[in-house]
Amino acid sequence: MKVTVSHQNDMKFEAKTSKSSFIIDCPTISPVEYFLSGLITCSATDIILIPKNQGKSVTDLVVEGDVIRAEPHPAKFDKLHLTYSFNSDADDDTQAARWVMASLETYCSTINTIRDTTQITYTIIHNGKTIRENEKMISGGGSNIDLGDISGCPS
């Protein structure tokens, strides 16, 4: 995978991938917000695709991410809580929970990239009922690794 980011003007940048391009309008939307959006979207796509591959479907999917960041800079993610809310024709709530856990523990490469430095928890609301609340990921869990100071686009 390769991405090229080019400065356009002011604090606008164009990101080009092999498939498309988009404008990053900083600080209207900060790179950290794009990053969190990418993490969430990675997992959200799994929550659609995993059931589909099992002959099931998910509707009304909403995934919220709430991050607590370290102080001071580089203000890395210390804690991330994800709330998954969706309806489905899963056989039961356990199957629906397994879809989320498979995304978090195995398939979502972006979340798995940060799991060793970020404590990740999740809540699942399936067919209007909370079936998991503030559960911790099985693996990872964060650490106290100091990645040092960097300066860049305001976040």
Rank of each mutant, 00 (worst) to 15 (best):
M11G: 02
F13R: 01
F13E: 02
E14L: 06
E14W: 04
K16F: 14
T17A: 10
S18V: 09
K19P: 01
K19V: 09
S21H: 14
S21K: 13
F22D: 10
F22P: 08
I23T: 13
D25E: 15
C26A: 15
C26Y: 13
T28W: 13
I29A: 12
P31C: 07
P31V: 06
V32H: 12
E33I: 05
Y34I: 06
Y34A: 03
F35V: 03
L36Q: 07
S37H: 12
L39H: 08
I40L: 14
T41M: 12
S43N: 10
A44K: 03
D46C: 08
I47K: 01
I47A: 03
I48Y: 13
I48H: 10
P51E: 11
K52I: 03
N53F: 14
S57D: 12
S57C: 08
V58H: 01
V58P: 04
T59A: 13
T59R: 11
V62P: 05
V62K: 13
V63D: 08
G65W: 10
G65L: 13
D66A: 07
D66M: 08
I68T: 11
I68L: 14
R69T: 07
A70Y: 10
E71S: 15
E71C: 13
P72K: 12
H73K: 09
H73M: 11
A75K: 07
F77N: 00
D78W: 02
K79A: 01
K79Q: 07
L80G: 00
H81D: 01
L82H: 02
S85F: 02
S85P: 01
F86L: 04
S88M: 04
A90Y: 02
D91L: 10
D92S: 07
Q95F: 00
Q95Y: 02
A96I: 02
R98T: 05
R98A: 04
M101T: 01
S103I: 02
L104F: 03
E105L: 00
S109C: 12
T110N: 14
I111P: 00
I114E: 08
I114A: 08
D116H: 14
T117E: 15
T117N: 15
T117V: 15
T118G: 04
